[in-house]
Write a protein that binds this DNA or RNA. Structure first.
Lengths: 214, 214
DNA sequence: CCACCTTTTGAGAGCTACTCTCATTTACGA
DNA sequence: TCGTAAATGAGAGTAGCTCTCAAAAGGTGG
């Protein structure tokens, strides 16, 4: 059961959703309503110009309830459910693969899934993240929280070094760096979404080669 | 006057400070007072637990004045004046040097200066930055706009590539990564202050070699 | 030394993100 | 159908941050 590749992890989530108890279904519905109305309002009139009160009114809930679903206003844009999926896909890669190769394969698998879900919402979130500094900073931080630990663990495993090895850590930080470079190039519109996987591939190759730029 | 090495760029700033008109001197004095009292209070009782009002009271100014000197509470910790100095020192390196070698030389020059200035303040700022998520996120964002922009510029110069070259950007992000790795290793006590320069050197070497960890 | 102009400051009102408490309502299980 | 646990709403309160306006302090020409 754990050796099969997670071909459509997102679809599985969707299926599971339907046979949930009423209470849980309502919660998910409310959560989605908040997120949809928030993204619409942010896009229409700007992030800073939209108050939580407005979002609450549009989603027909109270401001109190808003903060029960999203601890901060930023979380409405930043939160995504792809981190555990990515971790799962990463761990499912063949043990023989070098860390960088495993990373490449992971991104080749997960990117199409992300975009197949809800392209409009993904695009809106991307635009906002690129434009609003606070959101950009938070996204970076959450990328780091979600990815850095996994990278450290897997790379320590594959190199046979301890997890707090300083060289491993330097490597994972550099990895995170080139991934962020790719993300920003995408957010700024300098890399098309269709080329993102190739661009990540290219950056990882550069890293492995010690950046021969001259 | 521009070809001589900036042996003690910080000292020059200090000299310049003394023959400033009274108004400017007072401003700098107020600024420093705010920062000193803020860092002390943050260290004593925590960042979130310290209000701007408390800082203002300790520095004997009004809360209004606080926000005239620092646009946000976070800026008291995040703001530094080292980016232009770093750029200057980097540019003064021999043109024949490879980018990584130039960087290593730059850090060998600038680190002693940074630490000679006010070790306690620097350490307090680093600690807070490492511990408080909001500050970490903001520091990353300010690194992106400050240090990263400078690195991009000077490395584009040395490699003869355009500034928005994607490969240059991947490189600078990886550079920032290994520098942050060194910073966190220092903050965690895994690298002594006297070894910091050597550790940065080592990380940069690893980066240049493509991280041969196996 | 005085008068004039500019810059800096303080006081206070106001907005909004966010927290906490408590009473009310709503889904679930027996 | 009733009792329990969870979800919600209302409201008060805190703190970061903005804006305005009048008072104070620094700099300058006579």
């Amino acid at each position: 059961m754990s050796t099969s590749l997670p071909e459509h992890a997102i679809d599985r989530l969707q299926d599971r959703l339907e046979r949930l108890p009423l209470r849980e279904r309502k919660k998910l519905k409310t959560r989605r309503a908040i997120q949809d109305h928030a993204l619409r309002l942010f896009t229409e009139q700007g992030y800073d110009e939209t108050t939580v009160e407005q979002i609450a009114e549009a989603a027909e809930i109270s401001p109190s309830t808003f903060f029960r679903y999203f601890p901060t206003k930023e979380d409405v844009v930043v939160t995504d459910e792809y981190d555990p999926i990515m971790a799962e896909i990463f761990r499912a890669q063949p043990a023989g693969l070098a860390p960088i190769e495993a990373l490449r394969a992971t991104f080749r698998e997960i990117l199409p899934q992300m975009l197949a879900g809800d392209l409009d919402a993904v695009t809106a979130r991307m635009r906002l993240t690129a434009q609003v500094p606070a959101l950009r900073a938070r996204t970076t931080e959450s990328l780091r929280e979600g990815t850095h630990a996994v990278l450290k663990e897997v790379i320590a495993e594959r190199t046979g070094r301890p997890q707090d090895d300083l060289d491993v850590e330097a490597f994972t930080w550099a990895l995170l760096g080139v991934l962020q470079a790719a993300m920003y190039a995408w957010l700024d519109g300098r890399v098309a979404i269709d080329d993102l996987t190739d661009h990540i591939d290219h950056n990882l190759e550069l890293l492995a080669a010690g950046f021969p730029l001259c």
